[in-house]
Amino acid sequence: MFDASYILTFLPKLLESLPVTLGLVGVATAAGLLLGLLFALARLEKLPVLAEASTVLISFLRGTPVLVQMFVVYYGLPLLLQGIGIDILRWDKIIFIYITYALNASAYFSEGIRAAVLAVPARQWDAAAACGLTKGQSYRRVILPQALPIAIPSLGMTFTGLLQDSSLAFSLGILDVMGRAKTLGALTSRALEAYAAAAVIFIILTLLSNAGFHTAGRSRKRKEALT
């Protein structure tokens, strides 16, 4: 039945698809952080309309499965953009996946960033203002550098969650590590071994990500203690 030696033959094949998984997570993290920062700023600064829109969007993205979001983006975005004369039906499927995961991650990133900024003591704002810094300068030079170490654990959790969720992209036909495992399993009728090999890769990636954010959080704290 279960033949562990197949795991070793499958691993190199699955690793060929690792760039797809990492690319997905990387793009979603970069775009998600940027979007998340914008959403967080809109809410922190109570910008009219934008703040309310961000709140609703974040609630929706956090309250619905990423699997459903993926299909809503896949079927909905072409229709939405057709309305303003842009044809994206020919786009590569992976772009819809990037957009879905970037949006999904942005909601969690935004909450992490917002909580961290609110955790910076109010007197830091007063001190920055007393030095004659503008709002933008205060954010850039005083508040965000102090918010970052507070946000690291939450950002890490979002990143790990994103890594795990990326395994759902196969349901739209993306050949990431998970998608590759599924096709390999079907081709060789050794599905269990193929899934085990994929599990090994995901477990290692998760442990690496956890360890990375753990050390990042610690070194940040140490740096703070020194200054």
Binding site: L168, G185, A191, L192, A199, I203, L207
Partner: peptide, 22 residues
């Protein structure tokens, strides 16, 4: 616990599915 948290839910479900079917 660390191992389980490293495995995506969909992967866990598919493994259970294959195990059950076999």
């Amino acid at each position: 616990v660390a191992l389980i948290k490293g495995i995506p839910v969909v992967l866990m479900m598919l493994v259970f599915f294959v195990l059950a079917s076999e």
